[in-house]
Design a protein around this nucleic acid. Structure first.
Lengths: 149, 149
DNA sequence: ATCTTATTATGAATTGTTCACAATAAGTGT
DNA sequence: ACACTTATTGTGAACAATTCATAATAAGAT
């Protein structure tokens, strides 16, 4: 009963196009892909697509809230299909790997700052920085600080 | 007893230069400035400085942990002098204003994710998105979604 | 005062992204 | 099925933020 991609696109008031379907499909295979990764994946099915179109498609899907865009420091924007839940991300400071992290508390854990200086807070975004399992194993073969130096 | 900027630079093993001092001074006046804002501020004292040099100086000071770099989604990198404490940021989705937010709990609140998927978490970074007091007052005169659309 | 080396200036290059506009194709009504 | 309207894509150029290579300069040590 998982809604068909085509249906969710239509439900969002958008036209269903092969490139949009292909992008959603690519994001299923690549849960945290940047524009270029999506482009390369889609290109296999549609050799004529351009990077700019991928940008446009990703932008449209993001605006329609069918996908979510995250922009970790030191990396290009990443897109993910998992939406609607308040989950966060752990990012490897060595290789850039991204891992979903559920809220520690059942609901938005950090949503109540002690003092927000009068801000009307709408959302809280948490990014955990550390070493992924693989990079913990290999002490420091990786190019060190490719992210966040 | 606040350490002189020159001393902290020296203590970090770096040479004390007029441009580094000027950048630190600029960041005192502008608590969350991007490179261009720092450049313009420093330029008033040192008309011959270049943006590239400001980049280099900011990079050096960041690496020496004399300043901290934050990279909010949709905005260029910002730098701040307040370091050494685990504080977070509230950012206005309308005008981009940045406000420091102390940890809700005394110490790193979100540092214990329920399940980090094997990651060795080093730091947690929290970004609160919402409307600053000024933008709450003015319903929507601002260009809407200049950040985070 | 000299010398070594870190730092800055200069200029060009790169990356990620957006824009304007013409070509195409989705969905709607016939 | 057919035509029509308009969203969407392709094309090409532009842009912003940042980094790089190299030569010139200035900090700090001798």
């Amino acid at each position: 009963m998982t809604p068909e991609p085509a249906d969710s696109i239509r439900a969002a008031g958008l036209r269903v196009t092969t490139q949009r379907l292909a992008v959603l499909e690519a994001l299923d295979a690549l849960p945290h892909a940047d524009t270029d990764a999506v482009f390369r994946a889609v290109q296999k099915q549609q050799p004529d697509i351009t990077v700019q179109s991928v940008y446009v498609v990703l932008g449209a899907l993001t605006e329609a809230a069918l996908i979510r865009r995250i922009e970790p420091a030191g990396s290009p924007a990443l897109y993910e299909r998992r939406i609607g839940d308040n989950h966060h991300h752990a990012i490897c400071t060595s290789c850039g790997a991204v891992q979903d992290v559920d809220c520690a508390v059942g609901h938005a854990p950090c949503l109540s700052p002690s003092e927000a200086g009068g801000f009307a807070i709408a959302t809280a975004e948490v990014t955990y920085w550390g070493l992924c399992p693989a990079c913990q194993a290999v002490p420091s073969t990786q190019p060190e600080s490719s992210l966040r130096n």
